[in-house]
């Protein structure tokens, strides 16, 4: 009996440790929540958890879009701040009851920006950093030209109602985020496009040699990212009832950080939208805890940067060991 037990326990331990290694971000999230619950009185309440999710849902939607780009092996979409601003402005631009149309136009604009990114990267073979920076700059320029940089205010309650509403106590923005994560995950796991996306990201030349239309896949991935950024813009517009040209500033980095903290490697391979959701939750929980502890912004940035780098290094150490 003793011998059997001895053999079983290390086996189970090893399995747990393998699982933990593969899911470092999730483990970190659990640790954060436990620590918060134990040491911060205001932390463990359902209201606070909902707050965390709601405050991060705007960035989270952009992160879902960013995940498509990262899985496709194209690193980053730096045009997101511009796309968010364009989306927000267009959503606010309509008077009266045409807010549905305004939303559709905003989404279409996001899609267009994304397709231009995709064309630049896939067809013109421009480095994604350069291509998306360029396209974003053009989009910002056009928007500035059109609006003169003026603050845009809402003329209609439709979008505001949609964004600020709640279903069974859950904010609609959170529902939108969860819906997009689920949609992305279904697309990734259950469709041909999902398989193509992963192959393209892991090795686009080999994918092409196996008949994967890698250019099309890349263009579609950027298209999704553009649409997601536009959704973020619409959500911000509806929530704040106003938007200026800088409304999307910083979202591209926060979204990328959430994707990477979630554990989707920039080199392709392991990837999922659920991981991105975990990444978003980690960023949100960390921010929330630091806020509750009353840390000044300077310390918050410092901690965020350190955690970001630490988790990437830890992840690489463990995944290298598996090779």
């Amino acid at each position: 009996m003793a011998a059997v037990a001895e053999r079983v326990i290390p086996g189970r331990g090893a399995a747990v440790s393998t699982w933990a290694r593969a899911n470092i971000p999730l483990v970190l999230l659990v640790v954060l929540v436990v620590v918060g619950t134990l040491f911060i009185d205001e932390f463990p309440s359902s209201d606070n958890f909902v707050d965390i999710l709601q405050s991060q849902s705007f960035m989270g939607v952009a992160a879902v879009g960013m995940t498509f780009v990262v899985i496709a092996g194209r690193f980053v979409d730096l045009s997101m701040p511009a796309t968010i601003a364009v989306g927000a402005y267009l959503a606010l631009s309509v008077h009266g009851d045409l807010w549905g149309t305004a939303g559709a136009v905003a989404l279409l604009a996001g899609l267009t920006i994304g397709l231009f990114n995709g064309l630049g990267v896939a067809v013109l073979r421009i480095n994604p950093v350069i291509a998306t920076l360029g396209v974003g700059s053009i989009a910002s320029g056009l928007l500035l030209n059109k609006t003169g940089g003026a603050l845009s205010r809402s003329h209609s309650d439709g979008i505001a109602n949609l964004v600020s509403g709640r279903v069974a106590g859950v904010p609609n923005t959170v529902i939108i985020l969860l819906g997009l994560v689920a949609a992305g995950q279904l697309l990734l796991v259950y469709t041909r496009f999902g398989s193509y996306l992963r192959l393209t990201g892991a090795n686009d030349e080999a994918a092409a040699a196996a008949g994967v239309p890698t250019r099309l896949v890349t263009i579609v991935a950027f298209g999704f990212a553009g649409v997601a950024a536009a959704v973020t813009g619409i959500m911000i517009a509806g929530f704040a009832d106003q938007a200026d040209i800088a409304v999307g500033t910083g979202f591209e980095f926060d979204a990328l950080i959430a994707v990477v903290i979630g554990g989707t490697p920039l080199a392709g391979g392991r990837c999922s939208f659920a991981r991105t959701l975990v990444g978003v939750a980690i960023v949100g929980t960390m921010n929330n805890m630091m806020l509750l502890l009353g840390l000044p912004t300077s310390s918050q940035l410092l901690v965020k940067g350190l955690v970001f780098i630490a988790i990437v290094i830890t992840d690489r150490l463990f995944s290298r060991a598996e090779v």
């Binding site: 992963r198 192959l199 090795n203 080999a206 196996a210 008949g211 994967v212 490697p265 080199a267």
Partner: peptide, 20 residues
Amino acid sequence: RLGLALSLSTGANAVAPSLR
């Protein structure tokens, strides 16, 4: 470079040309 997506599973690589 052209044959395998090394970071993916052998299964994902084995079915790549048959996905359609």
